[in-house]
Design a protein around this nucleic acid. Structure first.
Lengths: 228, 228
DNA sequence: TAGATTGTTAATCGATTAACAATC
DNA sequence: TAGATTGTTAATCGATTAACAATC
């Protein structure tokens, strides 16, 4: 597997390729061509081949791609085969939702411990993950060096929590707080999940569609016709 | 406010502009130039001006942008000033998290009702929003025509729920299920929030950084030096 | 007026698409 | 062998950046 420098656009497409190929794999499909993938995902076949070619030669002329091999290679590219450990900070509803329903292992992460400051949840176990009090966090970081932390604390506490994590040597933060956290150490990978940004995009498209259908002006035979 | 056709890249930057300008507005800032915005958001000043210019002329030569006016215009572009109604399907942990902590009104949405099939939550009220049984959903869609639905049901139920929503005349779906829902009516706006895609992107960057720092090869004085 | 900063046009850069030789 | 399909190169398209006239 090669590693050319690729754009964020390519990186954003990789998980979509993976999901698609994983489905084919699960349905025992053995081979697939770039044009079949294109039909399924919606990106052009040329783009798919171009994207893959940044990381190596995974196919075979006249045959296409072996699904098992391609799946493995994309897992490698995305790092899903590495065994990362992670912790979760903030066991409110969102934190609980992720612990209970999200399959971290499918993405190459093993959840080792969760933290909260509420005595009512500290000591409980959620889907096999123990919830500790926050006072244990620094010690845990120091002893166990988890690779990644899921940040699901309230917005106001995001920065303080991030500071502790970075100080404790974390490598990556998956930030659900909606706050833009400032990181002193630029080697820390931060991935933001912003519900507000997502909903505003939805709002944009909804509004646009509405404007289009509410005042549909047609140009026909040289005249502007406004639908009744 | 004008409406040229713009790329998804531009649309994705709009919420970031809005958040930044909203902060300035909240801190009583009166005017701002594209270069100040550039420093704050990280996009180039030229790009910011270019982006805004798709929607109108919001600034003034020699002065910059009036923060209040610019904020209003971006709200208009994003549709945050329209009063949309929405419902939520699936009051598990994720649904509850959104109901309790997410400010729908900041994004121009008013949450009118939530639905669940679990008798234990049906009849309760979460942050002022009543939870009804799913059997009421079709009637409610028919009578109240909510604009948008938040989909926080289990993955397996995503498609069935989406079908009911589309059938009931919904205009937009904010899909948190991780399932790719198929929509017959192409006028329905769908915005997917995929935790898995987000975490896989994080995994990609984490892996890349690790490979870079684990085997750092320096080129110095014509020699390749491998760090001890 | 002089300085600042916009909106827009032209230049550059990068990403996507088309085409095709290589080859299974 | 003939047909299919890759990986890659070149062509096209689109997005970002640079430059600057307009003007507050």
């Amino acid at each position: 597997m090669r590693r050319e420098k690729v754009s964020e656009n390519v990186i954003a497409r990789l998980p979509q390729y993976y999901r698609c190929i994983n489905e084919l794999y699960d349905s025992n499909c053995v081979r697939v061509s770039s044009s079949t993938l294109s039909d399924r995902i919606g990106f052009s076949a040329a783009q798919i081949r171009q994207d893959f070619s940044h990381f190596g030669e995974f196919g075979q002329q006249g045959y296409g791609y072996n699904v098992r091999k391609l799946r493995y290679e994309i897992r490698e590219i995305l790092g899903l085969n590495s065994h990362n450990t992670c912790i979760l900070l903030g066991c409110g509803n969102l934190g609980k939702a992720l612990l209970q329903n999200f399959n971290f292992e499918d993405c190459g992460f093993f959840m080792v411990e969760a933290f909260d400051k509420d005595p009512a949840v500290v000591g409980t176990t959620i889907r096999g993950v123990e919830v500790s009090g926050v006072e244990r966090l620094e010690l845990m970081l120091d002893q166990d060096h988890p690779d990644m932390a899921v940040l699901t604390v309230p917005r106001e506490e995001a920065q303080r929590a991030a500071d502790i994590l970075v100080e404790g040597g974390i490598s990556a933060i998956w930030n659900f707080t909606g706050a833009e956290i400032q990181i002193s150490n630029s080697d820390v990978v931060v991935e933001n999940v912003s519900f507000a940004d997502s909903l505003m995009k939805l709002s944009y498209h909804l509004n646009l569609k509405r404007e289009e259908t509410d005042e549909p002006v047609f140009l026909a035979g040289g005249r502007h016709l406004v639908k009744p």
